[in-house]
């Protein structure tokens, strides 16, 4: 279909974007890669009054290693993250996750900031951000990932607040992200991530609840010396996944356990 009419403005800086959002007021949305927003608009399931296009803010497109931190600008495209040597050296799991998002065309446009701000339960970056205690930096503050993903599509972002950067810890040790889906370019039915960090394991899960999940029970069990197959049994502790067309809650919990075990075992 044809999207409903809206106003459009291009921002060339974060300040300008923020003031445009303020000017348009309620019903304005930020346009980055647009892969979630534009289809919704075409089906008229979303009818924003105005779009603030931030694709022209060039200084939000960067990847920087900064001591023990990896800083990624919000407008950095998936393809850049996938191929960046800096990411591959400092946080290879993130490059692998980026390469598993959508397809070539989607990766050429989609941005990390867009995925994080949209907070879809099936998003892959949020899982990595949460389990590694990443920081979500905005034009107003720094929000720990733990506080950022509040509910399905729900974050603490204010209407004129824009995600500018995601800051991860450097972690180049053994890691694996398994994204289980029917077709290669689909969203995860369930995703499981394992990353060795500072001698311990970090375990994250995608699409098993309204927000990404950090499987602390698994991490703790591993810390106490449990074998991967024993520890992974805890991956579904406390989960209440939603029923959807591809999996019922029981199956998702089962997948969480199986995929977590495999992720730990296959981590390199």
């Amino acid at each position: 279909m044809i999207p409903a009419a809206f106003e459009y403005a291009r921002a060339s800086s974060v300040e300008e974007a923020s003031s445009l959002l303020n000017r348009f007021g309620e019903g304005a949305k930020v346009l980055a890669g647009g892969h979630s927003l534009v289809p919704l608009m075409r089906l008229r399931l979303a009818q924003p009054k105005a779009l603030v296009d931030i694709n022209g803010i060039k200084d939000l497109d960067y990847v920087k290693a900064d001591g023990s931190r990896l800083r990624i600008g919000a407008l950095t495209r998936h393809v850049t993250i996938q191929r960046s040597k800096v990411v591959r050296d400092n946080l290879p799991i993130l490059a692998e996750v980026a390469g598993e998002i959508g397809d070539n065309q989607v990766r050429n446009l989609g941005t990390i900031g867009g995925v994080v701000a949209y907070a879809d339960a099936a998003g892959d970056y949020p899982t990595i951000a949460l389990m590694l205690d990443a920081d979500i930096v905005t034009n107003q503050r720094t929000i720990p990932a733990e506080d950022f993903f509040q509910d399905l599509f729900t974050t603490p972002l204010a209407p004129d607040e824009i995600v500018t950067e995601v800051v991860f810890p450097v972690a180049s040790g053994p890691h694996k992200y398994i994204k289980f889906r029917r077709r290669l370019f689909d969203w995860a039915i369930v995703g499981a991530a394992a990353q060795k960090l500072n001698g311990g394991w970090r375990i994250g899960l995608t699409n098993v609840g309204p927000t990404p999940v950090r499987a602390k029970a698994v991490e703790d069990a591993l810390q106490k010396g449990a074998k991967p197959e024993e520890a992974a049994e805890h991956a579904s502790d406390g989960l209440e996944p939603a029923d959807d067309l591809r999996a019922n809650p029981e199956y998702k919990k089962h997948l969480a356990r199986v995929l977590t075990r495999r992720a730990i075992q296959q981590a390199e």
């Binding site: 346009l31 647009g34 534009v38 296009d53 694709n55 065309q105 446009l109």
Partner: peptide, 19 residues
């Protein structure tokens, strides 16, 4: 609807002309 935008493959139904 795939086209090349500055050499990058993109789906031209997911962009507005203004972009």
């Amino acid at each position: 609807c795939t086209i090349l935008l500055d050499g990058q493959a993109v789906k031209s139904c997911n962009l507005f002309a203004v972009q």
